[in-house]
């Protein structure tokens, strides 16, 4: 059970209050019609899936209902930071860029 700091409630809460959405910072293409099928597929389905640091989006579903991002290690499960929507991570690696 992860212990997650909600950047909006500004405190740690139990994992059961949250739901995970998936990889963070996936931006919807502004002009989907101009993309090739392959580019569109890449947006829809292809993910980094790193073994190591990962930026991922969560939602505080039972709490403030806000979405936010976190940088988490996918092997040790350590959470290095959580940050608000619209902000950039302060901890990155080559894999996560």
């Amino acid at each position: 059970m992860l212990h997650i700091h909600c950047p909006y409630c500004e405190e740690y809460r139990e994992e059961e209050e949250f739901s995970v959405v998936g990889e963070a910072h996936i931006i919807r293409p502004l002009a989907p019609e101009e993309l090739t099928d392959q580019e569109w597929a890449s947006y829809l389905f292809f993910r980094k899936n790193p073994r190591g640091l990962h930026h991922e989006m969560w939602a505080h579903s039972h709490g403030c209902r806000k979405f936010f991002n976190m940088t988490r290690h996918t092997v040790t499960y350590q959470i290095l930071e959580t940050y608000k929507m619209g902000q950039q991570p302060s901890i990155t690696t080559e894999d996560t860029k």
Binding site: L2, E15, N49, H54, E56, T74, V75, Y77
Partner: peptide, 13 residues
């Protein structure tokens, strides 16, 4: 488990 994880363990819930 709903999150990515390579740790060969998941959450207790």
């Amino acid at each position: 488990d709903s999150y990515l994880g390579y740790g060969q363990r998941g959450s207790f819930d």
